[in-house]
Design a protein around this nucleic acid. Sequence first.
DNA 1: ACCTGAACACCGTTCAAGT
DNA 2: ACCTGAACACCGTTCAAGT
Lengths: 230, 230
Amino acid sequence: MTAEAAPRKHRTAGRPVQKILSKEAITVAALKLIASGGYDALTMSGLARHLGVAPSALYNHVASKHDVLLLVQDHIMANVDVSGFGALPWDEAVRRWAWSYREVFSQHTPLIPVIAVLPVTGAPRTLAMYEELTSGFLAAGWPEPLVVPAIVALESFIFGSAFDVTAPEDIFESGELAKANPKFSAAVRARQRNGGSAASPTADAAFRLGLEGLISGLEEQRRSWAAHGA
Amino acid sequence: MTAEAAPRKHRTAGRPVQKILSKEAITVAALKLIASGGYDALTMSGLARHLGVAPSALYNHVASKHDVLLLVQDHIMANVDVSGFGALPWDEAVRRWAWSYREVFSQHTPLIPVIAVLPVTGAPRTLAMYEELTSGFLAAGWPEPLVVPAIVALESFIFGSAFDVTAPEDIFESGELAKANPKFSAAVRARQRNGGSAASPTADAAFRLGLEGLISGLEEQRRSWAAHGA
DNA sequence: ACCTGAACACCGTTCAAGT
DNA sequence: ACCTGAACACCGTTCAAGT
């Protein structure tokens, strides 16, 4: 192979280094801004201010704000818990993964429209998650053609459910239209609230119900695939 | 009751009427802009231009752009097909509803973050859909406490899946990282593509698998609720 | 190679002034 | 009551100029 051009670090006195920024520094600053002020606070000028730099300087390291969102996305994907695959039964591993995945993205819902549509090329942590998942599905006896559709189905449910977590508890109050919609209004009052932790009992109950349904229903789809052949 | 202040229409010669705008006119114009140029084209000034009016005039009828999105949302909700409930078996009705719901919102994904988080008060068509759904679930023997969680679970899956429809077919190409993620790359190549119409075979296959899984899995959850009691 | 400063082409929204 | 026109406080992004 040809010699690699390794960056030479020649310390020239105490004068200030010219390189201040990097993709990593931008990602970290973005996460701080989001944590403190939400996605409204994530602006290119806010990022620049936080890094002590002019906004235009950012464009030496990222091509656009969209690029920043992708960096953030791949970074937080490492917080999704895939440890169950290979260690626990399939359904237990899916359960652990799904709850942690929803938890992570309920804090980052503005990323969902971005990642659900974006090629996974160049998102190494995201790919690593998919590799773990695939491995776990295959080891549990899933036929290869169903693995990706099953993962996508679960992921779609998780993304949709992440929005729910941030919804106010009174989202289904029908107000003065209650009398015109009596059955729905009654069902809202009667709805189940258990099945989860503290913060959002109704969202948790719906997520638990859907997830348990998906887990058993997908297993049934797998069995009927095995019976029918392709 | 007190006398209602009905709008008097006094025709004063042929001089131009002063009222040009209305919520309805704004909604229709918004739908036209979205249809021709997508949600990027939906700006307050674009709306005003299309209606032959100054941008500030819009604020006599809506409080914000967010308001416009809500008008659009409730308008298109009427396109979701709930005709199966009361006419077909529960699973068939859910199938018809779910496919049409995904179809409608795959054209309007920018609405999803808005509606998933917004109180349903003052969205009459949306409430009417929920009333139909509730009625159908109850008639099929669903226990009242599970109706809303089941609807929310299905809706979450549908919203997440609506994003998938707009994703490029090569979204899972791992590029040069393919060798580092061999099982996933192979599963992507082997994935099932049937189970839907023409335009997006892989998204359709995932949606079909997840929906069929959810339908049978939710029915199982319903049975186990009946067995356990509350 | 990397950063600064000024500028550009937009946004959504407000508000005094007109009729 | 409803619309106009000007203004405000932002956005993300570009680009010549500096070192």
